[in-house]
C-alpha cells in the first residue's frame, strides 16, 4: 500500500513535469519556431514605449537571452526555491513558489493565483455537492422506474441539461432572479471567511447553473449503471434475504454502480477547480478561469504558465485521490 502510494505520487509528479515542459514549449518554443524574435518577446514585457536599452535590460534580467533549456530550468527552479529579478536599480525577490511576474501588470503571479483559487474552489465544491446528490438521486429514481413517465421526464430534463450551454442557463438564471423576480440584487463573491451566509446566498445561482449541466450527465451515468447492477444475480440474493428494497437499492445496487461515477467525478472536479471559465465569465467571478482567459488574451505568458500548471496540479491531484479511493470502492482493483 505504501509502496503503491509512493509510486503513484512519483508518477503524478512526473506527469506535472511533463505538463510544465509541454506548456513551456508551447508558449516559449513554438513562437520562436514561428519566427518570433527574443526582442519581440521582451517588448511584450516592457510595453509599447520600449526603447532598445530597456528591451536589452529585460532580456538580460528575465534571462530571455539564455538558451530555452536554461530558461526552463530557471522556471522550474523558481517554483521550488524562488528567484531574484533585477529591474534597473532595484532588485525584487520572488519567493517560492515563484511563477514570475505578469508581463502586463508586473505583479507576481503566485499571490494572484492564491487569491483566485478560493473563488473557483467555492464555485466548484458547492456545484459538485449539488450535482452529485441530485444527479445520482435522479439517476436511481429513473432506473427504478424505467420506461415510466417519471423516467422519461427525468431523462428529457437531463438531455436539456447536457445540451444547454452554461452561458444560456446561467444568463437565464441571472435574468430571471435578479431582474424579473429580483430575489438577488446581484451576484457577487463574498469570501466565506468574511460572511458565510452571504457567501452561500450569492453563489446559489452559479451553483445551480453549473450543477444543472453536470447533474444531467451524472443522472444518465447513474441510471445506466443502476440498470446494469439491478439486474445482477447478487441483487436477487439480497432480495432473497428479505432485505428491504431501499437497502437492496442503496447497499447493493448503488454501491456497485459507484465506480464509474467516482472516476468521472474525479476528472470533472479537477478540471473545474482549474477554472470554470464560462461560468466565471457569466457571473463575473474573478476566479482561475477568468484569470486564465485574460492572460491568454494579453499573451501574458507567466500567468498562462502558472494557471496551466496549477490547473494541471488539481486534475492530477483529484485523479490521484480517485485512484486511492478505488481500493475502497472496488476491492477487485488491487495495488500491484
Amino acid at each position: 500500500m505504501t509502496a503503491y502510494l509512493i509510486r503513484r505520487l512519483f508518477a503524478a509528479l512526473m506527469l506535472l513535469f511533463v505538463v510544465s515542459a509541454v506548456t513551456f514549449a508551447i508558449f516559449f518554443l513554438v513562437p520562436r519556431l514561428g519566427g518570433q524574435s527574443i526582442d519581440e518577446l521582451a517588448v511584450q514585457y516592457v510595453g509599447k514605449d520600449a526603447n532598445p536599452e530597456s528591451v536589452a535590460a529585460v532580456k538580460k534580467n528575465l534571462g530571455l537571452d539564455q538558451p530555452l533549456i536554461v530558461q526552463y530550468a530557471d522556471f522550474i527552479k523558481a517554483i521550488f526555491v524562488g528567484a531574484e529579478y533585477k529591474f534597473g536599480p532595484d532588485a525584487s525577490t520572488c519567493d517560492a513558489p515563484c511563477f514570475g511576474y505578469s508581463f502586463k501588470t508586473h505583479v507576481e503571479v503566485w499571490p494572484e493565483i492564491t487569491q483566485r483559487i478560493p473563488i473557483t474552489l467555492s464555485l466548484a465544491v458547492g456545484a459538485a455537492v449539488l450535482w452529485v446528490v441530485s444527479g445520482v438521486t435522479i439517476g436511481v429514481i429513473s432506473a427504478l422506474n424505467r420506461g415510466t413517465f417519471v423516467d422519461r421526464l427525468a431523462m428529457t430534463v437531463a438531455l436539456l441539461g447536457v445540451s444547454l450551454p452554461i452561458f444560456f442557463t446561467g444568463l437565464l438564471g441571472l435574468a430571471l432572479f435578479t431582474s424579473q423576480w429580483p430575489i438577488w440584487e446581484s451576484v457577487d463573491y463574498i469570501p466565506i471567511t468574511e460572511d458565510p451566509g452571504e457567501w452561500f446566498w450569492n453563489l446559489i445561482i452559479p451553483w445551480c447553473s453549473l450543477a444543472f449541466l453536470y447533474s444531467a450527465l451524472y443522472a444518465r451515468l447513474t441510471r445506466a449503471g443502476m440498470l446494469e447492477t439491478m439486474g445482477e444475480d447478487y441483487i436477487r440474493t439480497a432480495r432473497a434475504k428479505g432485505l428491504r428494497e431501499s437497502k437492496v437499492v442503496t447497499k447493493h445496487g448503488l454501491r456497485a454502480a459507484l465506480t464509474p461515477i467516482v472516476t468521472i467525478f474525479g476528472m470533472d472536479f479537477g478540471l473545474l477547480v482549474g477554472g470554470a471559465i464560462i461560468t466565471e465569465q457569466v457571473f463575473s467571478l474573478q476566479g482561475m478561469g477568468a484569470y486564465a482567459v485574460q492572460a491568454v488574451k494579453d499573451s501574458d505568458l507567466p500567468i498562462v504558465m502558472g494557471v496551466t500548471l496549477v490547473a494541471a496540479f488539481f486534475i492530477v491531484f483529484c485523479n490521484l485521490i480517485v485512484d486511492l479511493l478505488y481500493a475502497a470502492i472496488d476491492p477487485r482493483v488491487r495495488y500491484s
Partner: peptide, 8 residues
C-alpha cells in the same frame, strides 16, 4: 455472481 463483489 450471486455475491456482491464490492461488499465484504
Amino acid at each position: 455472481s450471486s455475491l456482491n463483489p464490492v461488499v465484504p
